[in-house]
Structure formats: structure tokens, C-alpha cells
Amino acid sequence: MKKDQTYLDSVHHYGRIWNLSVLVLFLLFPALLMVIFKTLPDWRGLSLGLLATAPMYWAVAFVEIFTYVPMLGAGGSYLSFVTGNISNLKLPCALNSLEQAGVKANSEEGEVISTISIAVSSIVTTIIIIIGVILIVPLTPILNAPVLAPAFAQLIPALFGGLAVVFISKYWKIAIAPMLLMIILFITIPALNQGTVGIMVPVGVIFTLGVARLMYKKGLI
């Protein structure tokens, strides 16, 4: 048990060092641009731009920490909150790996598998983007071909359709109520769309936890 704690503790220890160091690097980038090109930002544009963007993003990020950390595990979370694309890539990837390895998310084996899966996904993504950047001239007409556009436009439905079958077939009793609620909400409320689905994730999670707790107490699951 002590050894288990040591591994998790070390993940938090190194995760903190890495994330805070990378944070400094991220901030250095615009700061150095100012020094190198001897220019200040357009202060009015900066405040207006931040006002339009930051409050919502900050609120979403705050909620995301509470929603995603229990699902991603410690190592996976430190990596995911640096490398991004959590809901459309890292989390589905980790979920699939946990399922295939046959380990539980809340076990140490789960923690390790989730970290490996997210680290590999981050490395592969970074490499593919580097290839894309180097080959942007020949690749642009291919990837932007009108015939392929509908395929990439439907990435999320194509990804979650398959993933949903795996999980819903296993936990269908818990899944019925939240699925129905979300489908009804998204059909009837026009403001719910690609931009706001991130806000609905915690809503779905809290609702499902409530349903699951109720069913568990009543001995239904």
C-alpha cells in the first residue's frame, strides 16, 4: 500500500513541476515576442478579446478539472491539461485503453494504463501535427478536398457512436435516463451546440451520478 502511494505521490510531485514549468514557457512566448519585435500589444483589443473569451473558458476549465480528473487519473490529467483536446481525443482514447486492458479506472493498473494511453496519444498527435506543418503545401489540397469535408465534419458522432455502444451495453441501466435527458435538451434548446457541449458534460455527469446513487441505494444496480 505504501508503495502504491509512493507512485501516485511521485506523479503529483513531477506533474506539478512539469505543468508549472510549461506554464512559464507558454507565458514566455508572447512576452518574448514583445521583446524581439519591440512592440506592445493593442491594449484595447487585448482587453476586449479577453473579455469576450476568458470568462467562459476560465469557468469551463474550472468545471473540467472536477469532471475530468477522476476519469483521467493523475498522470493522465497532468498530461491532458497541458496537451489539450481532452473530450475529443484523450478521454475517449484512455477509456478505450482501460476497456481493452480489462482494468478498472479507479485501480492503480487503471491509473498506469490511462497515463500510457494519453502519453502515447499526445506524442502521436504532436508528431502528426509536425508532419502536417512540414508538408502543409502538398497536404492542404488533399485534406481540404471538398469530398473529404463531410467526413471530418462528422468526427464526433463517428467517434462517440462506437464508444457509446461499448459502455451503454455494459451499464444500460444507468445510461437510459441521462441519454434521454441529454437528447431532449439538445433537440429543444437551440443554444446547445458544438460550442456549449463542454458545459453540458458536467451537467450530464452530475445527473448520471444522481441517478446511479439512487439506483444503488435502492439495490437496482
Partner: peptide, 24 residues
């Protein structure tokens, strides 16, 4: 165990809902 799985299901249902966002 149920707690973690319920979180996964909650996340999945939000995205399933999203698939229906233009259904109207």
C-alpha cells in the same frame, strides 16, 4: 466503481445529446 462508470456515462450522454443538436 459505479461512481467512475457513471461519470463516463454522463460524459457520453452529453456528446450523444450533442449529436441531436441540429435534429429540430
Amino acid at each position: 466503481e459505479i461512481f467512475t462508470n457513471a461519470m463516463f456515462i454522463g460524459m457520453l450522454s452529453a456528446f450523444l445529446g450533442f449529436v441531436f443538436s441540429d435534429f429540430s
